[in-house]
């Protein structure tokens, strides 16, 4: 399985393109053990693997951070929140109204190796970024070899 190679020293101009190609490839071929696809649910998520654990990145701009909830139980991570669009002042009307509004709640199932109950989440630049650590049982452990 290919790793993302995003190193600005090596590949100064192809960075975004190579990331896009890699993401595109996985859209058609999700990795094994991810459970049923939740494609179409809000917010859309990408899930990555790293030596420390899984990284879930959801695109959800304009949320009220106070109403954002992330919970983890068993293999499941649940995110819920609301987007409200209310501009100040009395408008004369609108020319375009395309931004999505409303409430959402979505559950994501992760492979067994991860522990959603110990996840850490942050909301930054309209991205909800959740780090889910690998469970103790899934970490490599050195086995001591005993001599007779």
């Amino acid at each position: 399985m290919a790793f993302l190679r995003i190193d600005s020293d090596v590949d100064p101009f192809g960075t975004l393109l190579s990331l896009q190609e890699e993401l595109e490839r996985f859209m058609r071929n999700p990795a094994f053990a991810m459970g049923p696809s939740g494609f179409g649910a809000y917010p859309p998520v990408n899930i990555f693997d790293s030596p420390e654990g899984a990284l879930v990145v959801a695109e959800a701009p304009g949320l009220d951070a106070a109403k954002l909830r992330v919970t983890g139980t068993g293999r499941t991570l649940t995110i819920s929140g609301e987007r409200v669009f209310k501009p100040d002042g009395n408008g004369l009307g609108y020319h375009r109204r395309e931004l999505s509004e409303g409430k959402f709640s979505r559950s994501i199932q992760l492979p067994e190796d991860y522990e959603p109950a110990n996840a850490e989440a942050r909301y930054e630049a309209g991205l909800l970024i959740i780090r889910v650590p690998r469970g103790e049982h899934a970490k490599p452990r050195q086995i001591t070899v005993q001599t007779a």
């Binding site: 399985m1 790793f3 993302l4 995003i6 190193d7 960075t15 975004l16 990331l19 896009q20 890699e22 993401l23 595109e24 490839r25 996985f26 859209m27 999700p30 990795a31 991810m34 696809s37 939740g38 494609f39 859309p44 998520v45 990408n46 899930i47 990555f48 693997d49 790293s50 899984a54 990284l55 990145v57 695109e59 492979p111 630049a125 970024i129």
Partner: peptide
């Protein structure tokens, strides 16, 4: 321009959207 530095060293497992400018 979308920031891509956070993706360094990560391996996708499952994707629903692409990133771009």
């Amino acid at each position: 321009q979308v920031a891509t530095d956070m993706y360094a060293g990560l391996r996708p497992m499952y994707t629903e959207y692409n990133v771009g400018n």
